[in-house]
Design a binder for these strands. Sequence first.
DNA 1: TTGACAGGCAACCATTAGGTTGCATATAAG
DNA 2: CTTATATGCAACCTAATGGTTGCCTGTCAA
Lengths: 109, 109
Amino acid sequence: MDDDSVFRALADASRRQLLDRLYAHNGQTSGDLCQNMEMSRQAVAKHLAILEEANLVAVQWRGREKLHFINPVPINAVAERWISKFEAPRLDALSTLKRTLEGEGNGQQ
Amino acid sequence: MDDDSVFRALADASRRQLLDRLYAHNGQTSGDLCQNMEMSRQAVAKHLAILEEANLVAVQWRGREKLHFINPVPINAVAERWISKFEAPRLDALSTLKRTLEGEGNGQQ
DNA sequence: TTGACAGGCAACCATTAGGTTGCATATAAG
DNA sequence: CTTATATGCAACCTAATGGTTGCCTGTCAA
């Protein structure tokens, strides 16, 4: 919902790495995600809290374990609302080029 | 080229606003971009320097004026390399189209 | 019940980020 | 030439960020 929290959450390489790892294997515990992270468990927990705050990660408790699941919706929303704006002119240019190259007027996507 | 500098540059709302303003009207001077920015000229200059550093803005000198032009390529590159992974189904077709077109020797990147 | 394990909370620290002010430099205009 | 304008540079300040350590709570298993 909040573009700013999403952008800020994505600004840190460690947090992007955590998302990458969740993308590779969803539903990991904090402990799992701490493996090979070159920082303390609490530091990882803080990063996960920020991702959770930005709604990029959803959690589910199973006993004493906290499972983390990636939530792609905010990323998609930001990409659609904000980034695609800067992509549109370029795609327009490409579409025009495509029509030019193909010599026909059917460049619909 | 450097994902991290792009993500960090985009993390600040003021910088995103500057990009918005350049998108609305490209080629503005620092002075133009300071209008209605609720901060000093130097603060804006710092933000512009960060955008320039991340290659999101290209500059061109005209006498004593520094013109700023938006460069959408890094945003698109990050979107394609990183974000589209999380929305693979929806954007796959689009990315494929872009790669196809870019492979036809038009020198877009 | 007693320990081990998963995680949270709070205090603290160093660095960075965003902002300010003041002054310097280069170009344009009179 | 003098002055106004556009921008750069540097020092400085404050708050946020990313990290640490120490301790506490809740859950599982022997």
